[in-house]
Amino acid sequence: MSTHASEATQPVRKKSKTGLIIVLVLAVIALNVVAGKYLGLNHGIEINIFPRPVEGFGGGVLTETNISMFVASALIVVSALIIRIFFIPKFKAVPGKVQNVLELIVGTLENYASSISGVKDAIVPAYGLTVGAVIVFSGFAELLGFRAPTTDFLMNAALALIALIVINIVGIRKFGFPGRVKSFFKPVPMVGPILIVTHLLIPVSLTFRLFGNILGGMIVLELLYAVTPLVVPGILNSFFVLFHAGMQTFVFITLMFTYVNEAAEEPHD
């Protein structure tokens, strides 16, 4: 009887979940269409590689990506506070819905980090989740009509430089500082300069990959906003924000884990 009941309830639940997802996607698209019409700060044929300074707010020091990064940070802080205040104190041994989702995200990321990087250092998945949150929430700021913070070169450079620091923290924790320095000169001392330059090129590569991808998406969207009525770029903007940025987050995190693996593996003698 009980199995029958569960079989009977399963399709209904699944259907309602699909309906919820469709409603969410439609809401995102509608929000984006409205925001593109009324809040859009920079939709026009003019495309800037470097963000323009905003007049009257901080005396022209702040650029439009600074403003949208403030919005994205506010979104991140508010959602983190909501999770911390309302959900984490209610955690039980038998998880509820929200706890399940949170544990799924954290557990998946931890497994992924340790399977690729081969170290069980808490800082690695923590920074991966941070990068993911920053990129995804700057996508949400873009949905509100701002220019995405990740289209700023310096923003990506900051993310990649912190990734370099995390990589070296893991290496130093594993081998100690002298061992980490020695690992650059390991097979023969002659390769030292080459390895050091390769190591210093890690943040350059990460920066350009993220910057080029997101900026390319932005330029495509700007051109679309210039030539079509509002609905088409609204839909495509949602696609770029939800799928393309998520894909880039995944690539960024995977590459960072791979570099951590390189930094943490035993040097060859």
Binding site: I47, G212, L215
Partner: peptide
């Protein structure tokens, strides 16, 4: 799959470099 996606990402970065060079030529 894992290695493939990693390799594709690294190859894609070459394409991204040419995109960035083209953008810099166009706009700067």
């Amino acid at each position: 799959n894992r290695v493939l996606i990693l390799g594709l990402a690294i190859m894609e970065s070459v394409a991204i470099y040419s995109l960035i060079i083209a953008i810099l030529i166009i706009f700067i």
